[in-house]
Design a protein around this nucleic acid. Structure first.
Lengths: 129, 129
DNA sequence: GAGGATAGTTTGTGCCACGTACCACGTCAA
DNA sequence: TTGACGTGGTACGTGGCACAAACTATCCTC
């Protein structure tokens, strides 16, 4: 079970490294990943990321300043805002995901095919609930 | 393989939660964990944590200010410093580790005994190199 | 000894996260 | 309809975290 903690750090290291190639932090990568199939408001975004709404403002603002993300006023709520990827943001998100899956599979190269399948399958059991 | 990323975030969330109970960040927990069986210098500490030496100064200073850690001049090198746990720091480290292993095993409760064993064994294969 | 390497610290910058206070809009009830 | 209250977001201040560059003090080598 200590191995699981170690493994999580190793994965975080991969995420940080891939992010660093594009000048993105881990949280920014998560942001882009979440927005790939959603256009949430700030509050909803905060729940996905487990962050306070006041943390989201700066996060989105920094991403917006870099042209990765876009705020548009909510059509149904004058107070609200919808956050969406720009084309540049989407491109980066897809590219990042490819690199991440490549480096993760590379990490699991120490396992043979059956073991890898078994491992990821057990992992997804743990994650899904 | 997306499951592995998700799993790593879940584990990080556990670490952050246990840390928060004692007002510790994840990096502080790692610091205490490393010092449990070592008294490294600052540079060596930085390598264990994957951080620059200039990052270590503040990290150790904050922990020292809280009485968890202690700097002592190295006996063999007038420039060097050895970092060690104080009794309070050791108590916290042990307590934290117990809580973490408890919450991790709780996380793996969706698996039966054989599966869990298999899973952690595969994980340690990935980690050891 | 003098010159370069090494261990740590300092300083400045930027990101991240939080709590608090605040503004604008929405909603509900009298 | 018009308050009172709730809700979505932002602004601001604080503090931790991480880096790079500049600096100090010691060590080592010739």
């Amino acid at each position: 079970m200590d191995a699981l903690v170690q493994l999580s750090f190793q994965i975080q290291r991969i995420l940080a490294a891939v992010g660093a190639e594009h000048d993105l932090s881990i949280i920014q990568i998560r942001l882009l990943g979440i927005l790939r199939d959603r256009q949430p408001g700030m509050l909803e975004l905060g729940q996905h990321l487990g962050l306070d709404k006041s943390s989201i403002t700066g996060l989105v603002s920094r991403a917006e300043k870099r042209g990765l993300v876009q705020r548009t006023p909510s059509p149904h709520d004058g107070r609200g805002v919808l956050v969406a990827l720009t084309p540049a943001g989407r491109r980066l998100a897809e590219q990042g995901e490819m690199q991440i899956t490549r480096r993760i599979t590379e990490l699991t190269k120490a396992l043979n095919a059956t073991q890898r399948k078994q491992f990821t399958q057990l992992a997804s059991v743990l994650v899904t609930p």
